[in-house]
Design a protein around this nucleic acid. Structure first.
Length: 307
DNA sequence: CATTCGTGGCA
DNA sequence: TTGCCAAGAAT
């Protein structure tokens, strides 16, 4: 949960998961769609699939005991350098570093390190440097380093005046704290323009399906097409016959890490039905991305009422 | 090594 | 309004 996600955001999800899935088996046996519903809104949805995969692996191949051997633990899905170091140091006191964004920022300033911290090789180097001076209280040390970054050595206005390691900080000495960490600039987000359709039939059902591909995989979405797609193509793609008149619902923008969706939504009627149609009162129970929820919200407020 | 994975808060 | 950033990992 904590991968690229703030602690404050994670807390309510964490509470829900440990309550609803208190044991390894509860998580291992859970339905993927139910897990996605509980993860809804947290983003990076592959994380929960990876986690379930790791839990099943532990249950089946490690006697339901989380492996204390770092080499074994690192084999689990979703376990990378950070999670591996964090868990193995905090839970089992192995002398491994837990290098997250906070730690990279702290270390780059301490050393006035101008290397690009987005590069895996640089992160590995920082990890090895920390491990070369790791005290026996590895878990505490890792958490202290992260906490220092989260509360004192912050991105914008670091509180150098109260920093406990100020006298060791090369960037502070040089008055160049704001030059670190060095990161390569992110490429511009790709803009994508879609028409999104609420297709309702006579039985109060709506066309809704699980998203495939990689982005938002497993989350339910409304039929969505490039803006230049003809109605004939849409009917043929979806296997439905659509009434001529369509009602404009609204416009939504949704920003992802690497792309932006611009969505225009419309309400359409059909007399068709197929396996993709779902009763309207079941829509609330399926996992849906924040992007699609925005579109639905507009229908509920401005549209034909009813949801 | 670079790209692709969500979402919300903040300046 | 825009870009940055968050207890990163898989591909």
């Amino acid at each position: 949960m904590l991968q690229q996600t703030q602690v404050i955001t994670v807390i309510p999800y964490f509470e829900k998961f440990i309550t609803k899935y208190p044991t390894l088996s509860d998580l291992a046996d859970a339905d993927e769609e139910a897990l996605l519903k509980d993860w809804e809104g947290l983003g990076y949805y592959n994380r929960i699939r990876n986690f379930q995969s790791a839990v099943r692996e532990v249950k089946e191949n490690y006697g339901a005991e989380v492996p204390e051997d770092p080499d074994e633990f690192f084999k689990l899905k979703g376990v990378g350098p950070y999670i591996g170091g964090a868990v193995q140091s905090i839970a089992f006191n192995h002398l491994l570093a837990a290098v997250d964004g906070n730690v990279l920022r702290v270390m780059s300033r301490l050393n006035a390190d101008a290397r690009d911290t987005t590069k895996a090789g640089v992160q590995k180097s920082v990890k090895e440097e920390i491990e070369s001076m790791m005290p026996l209280e590895a878990g505490d040390f890792n958490q202290a380093l992260m906490e220092l970054g989260a509360t004192v050595c912050t991105p914008r206005t670091p509180k150098c005046i109260v920093c406990p390691v100020q006298e060791h900080c090369e960037a502070f000495r040089d008055n160049t704290v704001h030059d670190y960490p060095v990161k390569k600039k992110k490429p511009k987000k790709k803009e994508e323009y879609y028409n999104v359709y609420f297709i309702l039939n006579d039985r109060e059902e709506i066309y809704l399906y699980r998203q495939e591909g990689d982005l938002l995989k497993g989350m339910y979405e409304l039929p969505k097409f490039d803006v230049d797609t003809s109605m004939e193509n849409i009917e043929s793609e979806l296997g439905v016959e659509l009434d001529q008149k369509k009602v404009y619902i609204g416009s939504d923008k949704h920003v992802f890490t690497h792309k932006v969706w611009y969505m225009e939504s419309y309400l359409l009627h059909t007399t068709s039905s197929n396996e993709h149609f779902m009763p309207l009162d079941e829509v609330r129970d399926v996992p849906m991305s924040t992007a699609m929820k925005k579109v639905f919200r507009k229908l509920a407020t401005d549209g034909a009422g009813g949801l």
